Structure formats: C-alpha cells, structure tokens
Simulated assay, not measured.
Amino acid sequence: MYRVAQVGNVGGEFEIAEREVQQPGPGHVRIAVEACGICHSDDLFVHAAVPGIEFPVVPGHEIAGRIDELGDGTGEKGWQVGDRVAVGWFGGSCGHCTPCRQGDFIVCQNLKVPGWAYDGGFAETVTAPADALARVPDALSAADAGPMACAGVTVFNGLRRSAGRPGDLVAVLGIGGLGHLGVQYAAAMGFETVAIARGAGKADFAKQLGAHHYIDSTGDTPAADALQSMGGAKVILATAGNSAAITAVVDGLSHRGELVVIGADPEPMGINPVQLLMSGRVVRGHPSGTAQDVVDTMEFSALHGIRPMTEALPLDQVNEAYQKMLSGSARFRMVLTPR
C-alpha cells in the first residue's frame, strides 16, 4: 500500500487515502516520490477547469524521486532501479499526433500531464511513462529538482528560445515563483537583466538574484517608459499572471522586441495591432518543456548555482501547503515531501 493526497470532488479539500501498489506497465516506471512541488496550475485540476478530469484526482507535476520498479522495456532504454529522476508538466507524449511527428513533443495534442492524464506526485509513489523521465544531477536535492521540472524549465526555455542574445536588455516581469528563477537564469545567460515588480522594497532582493536594474511598477515612471530610457528591452519575460501588468510593459519593448508570456491569466491582454506593427514586435506564448529540456534546465542550474526558493511540508500537511501556495504567503515554491 502507498498513500496519496487526493481531492474527492470539484474544489474539495485534500484527504489522505491508500492505494494498492501496482506493477508498472510496459514502457513505464514506478517512482518513489521524494519531493513534489505545488504549482498554481494544479488548481486547474482540483477545480476541473480543464476537460477530462476524473475524481478523485491526485495532482502534482513537479515530481522528483528514485525509480522503484521498472516496467517491461524500460531497462533497455537505460533506466535502472535507484536512478534519480524528475517528471514535470511533460508527463509523456502520444508519439502519433502531428506535433509529435514533427518532433514538437511539448505541444502534443494528447499530452500526458501528471495529475490530469494519470495520478500525480502528491503521493508516496507515482507511475509514469519512461519518455517523461529527466535524470537529476547529483548537485540538486529532490526539493530543488521537483520545481525545476515545471517552473524552472518553463522560465529557462522561455529565455533560451527567445530573441535575446548575450548582452541584450532583457526584462523579467514579476519576481515570484517563476520570476525569481527567471532573473537568475537571465543573468547567468549573459543578458543585461531588468527585474520589474511592485514596490521599491524589492530592489535589494532583485539585485541579490542577479538583476542589473530594478523597476518599481508602482513608481512615478511607468515601467514601459523606464525600459525605453534604457534603450528598450529586446525581450520581456512575463512571469506575472496578470494581464493588466503584462499590457502595461509592452511599449517597453525595443524594435523587433519579443514579449514571451508564461504567466497564465484568463483575462485578455489589452494590446492593439499598432503597438506590434510599427516596431515589428512579437508576442509569443511559451509552454513548459520536454524531459530533455528539464535535464538541460537542471544541469544549467547545477552549473550556475541556481536554485528555487522553497518551503517543504510533509504529505499529511497538504491542505496547509496548498493554501499557502494559493495565498502567496509561502516562500516562492511550496514542496511536499511524502517520504
């Protein structure tokens, strides 16, 4: 038997339940979960805000642990019992849809997100497809590696696949759960890094993360004007899940500048075509990343000493941990430690 933290109905509280341990099927492995980050998108599953959610639901897609048992065919792919692995938003792909046939697995039309397609990591064990596995470097703890599999890879990929090149002015909007990693990555990638957040009191923290400049979005000078006074941002990485805040910085882009949106908000952004056309600007949404992208993120993080700021609680305290994530009262990433 093993324990899971599950929600029995839409929007309900978490409860601890027991499940029978099952042999992983062909192409799958069972993972002993050592840490699982709590992501704001887990709330989509708890509230059935995406199609196909079946209750009870076990969320969790920032998983780190060790392989506990191999299904048929996984040993031939190089995996062994005891290997340290992470599984993120990319929890496996179908391999046959058009994006998969084009090699663009992260936008698979049948993407297998843990907590949605199968039980997630709010549990002592999780069974996942082998193509979802990312090998964790020795330098990273499980509590560090879990958030890297979703929050970390999303920010890392958003920057490295952007139009920015070393030396370019790159701004990170928001220095919360995503943005505090974004500032660290941007500085390590060689960008002239600007952190944008609410309040003058966050300036010192932004500098500690590696920012070369700080803009208080509540100050007298609009953030877009402040960016233009520096020459305009080649890239703005919008990590804040606030459409109004994102809209307010668009005019801070340089010519051919790129707005990379990773902060989710259902409200529309107020961008008009003229803002884009006259300067050749681009707006791009960016999803997470494949298992190999997660490996790249973790290895880059280990090399440059980049870590998420986390607060860990045991599985029994899942409701407290979840509420701290929702309220924003936690350190930047909440992590459950089932074992």
Rank of each mutant, 00 (worst) to 15 (best):
residue 32 A to H: 12
residue 290 T to F: 09
residue 252 G to N: 02
residue 298 M to S: 13
residue 296 D to V: 12
residue 185 Y to F: 13
residue 220 D to K: 04
residue 21 V to D: 02
residue 173 L to F: 08
residue 92 G to A: 13
residue 189 M to Y: 10
residue 148 M to T: 15
residue 125 T to S: 11
residue 2 Y to S: 02
residue 72 D to E: 07
residue 144 D to V: 12
residue 66 R to F: 13
residue 137 P to L: 01
residue 54 E to R: 13
residue 281 R to E: 02
residue 277 L to G: 02
residue 224 A to P: 01
residue 262 I to G: 06
residue 237 L to T: 11
residue 283 V to L: 08
residue 80 Q to S: 12
residue 254 S to D: 04
residue 252 G to Q: 01
residue 144 D to W: 12
residue 191 F to Q: 10
residue 138 D to V: 09
residue 282 V to N: 07
residue 319 N to F: 13
residue 171 A to I: 11
residue 64 A to C: 05
residue 200 A to K: 05
residue 155 V to A: 03
residue 53 I to C: 15
residue 165 R to I: 01
residue 98 T to H: 09
residue 8 G to E: 13
residue 66 R to P: 05
residue 21 V to I: 09
residue 56 P to K: 08
residue 184 Q to N: 05
residue 308 P to R: 00
residue 178 L to H: 03
residue 270 G to I: 01
residue 159 L to A: 00
residue 102 Q to E: 15
residue 287 P to Q: 15
residue 155 V to N: 08
residue 265 D to T: 06
residue 191 F to R: 06
residue 235 V to H: 08
residue 88 G to T: 10
residue 281 R to T: 04
residue 216 D to F: 00
residue 300 F to R: 06
residue 271 I to Y: 01
residue 87 V to M: 09
residue 92 G to L: 04
residue 4 V to R: 09
residue 284 R to K: 06
residue 56 P to M: 08
residue 133 L to C: 07
residue 47 H to C: 14
residue 261 V to R: 02
residue 238 A to L: 04
residue 273 P to C: 07
residue 114 P to R: 01
residue 126 V to W: 14
residue 182 G to E: 05
residue 206 A to H: 09
residue 220 D to H: 11
residue 111 L to N: 01
residue 284 R to P: 00
residue 243 S to Q: 12
residue 171 A to Y: 12
residue 33 V to H: 08
residue 79 W to V: 01
residue 291 A to H: 10
residue 195 A to Y: 05
residue 282 V to T: 08
residue 191 F to A: 05
residue 63 I to F: 10
residue 105 F to Y: 13
residue 81 V to S: 05
residue 3 R to A: 15
residue 297 T to M: 11
residue 252 G to R: 00
residue 74 T to H: 00
residue 312 A to C: 15
residue 302 A to V: 04
residue 244 A to R: 05
residue 204 D to C: 09
residue 171 A to M: 13
residue 232 G to A: 09
